[in-house]
Each structure stands twice: as C-alpha cells, then as structure tokens.
Amino acid sequence: MAILEILVYPDPRLKQVSTPVEKFDDSLRNFIADLEETMRAGPGGVGIAAPQVGRFERIVIVDVSSKPKIPHHGHLVLINPVVIQHDGWEVGREGCLSVPNYTGNVGRWEQIRLSAQDQWGNACVFEMQGFEARAVQHEMDHLQGLLFLDRLVSRRGSLFKRKVYKPAVTNSNVEKD
C-alpha cells in the first residue's frame, strides 16, 4: 500500500476525461487499495477519484460513514459509475483534495439512482440522497475532467439549507385511518 501523489489545480491533467475500466484484476484492486489509503490520508476526505492521482480510469471511492445522522451505504468502490436517474436539486458547500484552501457552493442532484461495478466487476445499483449523492457526483465529475470550481454558484444570495433527512416510511409508522 502507498499514499499516491494528488494532482492539484491548475494541473491540466485534471481536465482529462477518464476511460472505462475493462480489466478487473489484482493490479486494479492493488491500485484501489492505494487510492483508498490516499483518501484516508487527507483531512476529512469522504471521496476520491482515480484521475486525482493521475490514473485516468473510471474509478471512484466514496465513504461518508464518518458523518453523523445521514443515510449512506458505507464504504463504496464504484467502477464505471453512471447516474441512471436523478431528482431534486440542492446547493451545498464543497472542497476538494485537488483544490487546497478553497471551498465553494455547488448545486447537485438531491437524489440519484446509480449503476456501477464493484472491484470484481459485479454490476450493482444504488439509490442515494443528500450528502452521499453529492459526494458521488463530485467524484464522478473528476472522471469527466470537471472540478467543483467549474460548477460554482455565487455565495451572495445563494440561500441554502442543510438537508433534513426524513425517516423512511414503513408500514409500522404509516398512520392508518
């Protein structure tokens, strides 16, 4: 395992579009372990994308489980991820390992349905919302050569509220007439 060097804006390589992963082998999984270690080495990082360390393949890692009181899927390795459905729009504050000492407000879909593969090539589908959905969209932007800087909205007048997560409705808590 190794901590990899993170490309920092304005490095032109961050604008490069990444290619799909086709080979799901040990070399891929070793790289993912290094990418993971690199993400954990940064302060407060909840995600990382392969192009941030100069590997231009469609691989992202997201793990927002350290944040209290939000729904999430834990540690996620998403390979060749595609948003297949989205709903809502929300502005929130983002920073990036590749853009030190700056944060800005960015609009993202509030809920997404996502298809991806895991590190063994198995297909999977996730439904996510709020902070986790934001993290995935932030990382997926890197695969397209985009940074949150490319999506900034003005600070002034950008009223936004932190999302309040409603508990999932189940049969037991639906009131019956």
């Binding site: 909840v46 995600g47 990382i48 504050r93 920073g95 902070f131 993290a135 932030h138 932190r162």
Partner: peptide, 8 residues
C-alpha cells in the same frame, strides 16, 4: 443551518 463541507 449547519454548513457541512464535502471534501472529495
């Protein structure tokens, strides 16, 4: 509202 900064 609390500002939760996403760092990715």
């Amino acid at each position: 509202s609390e500002i939760e900064i996403l760092r990715g």
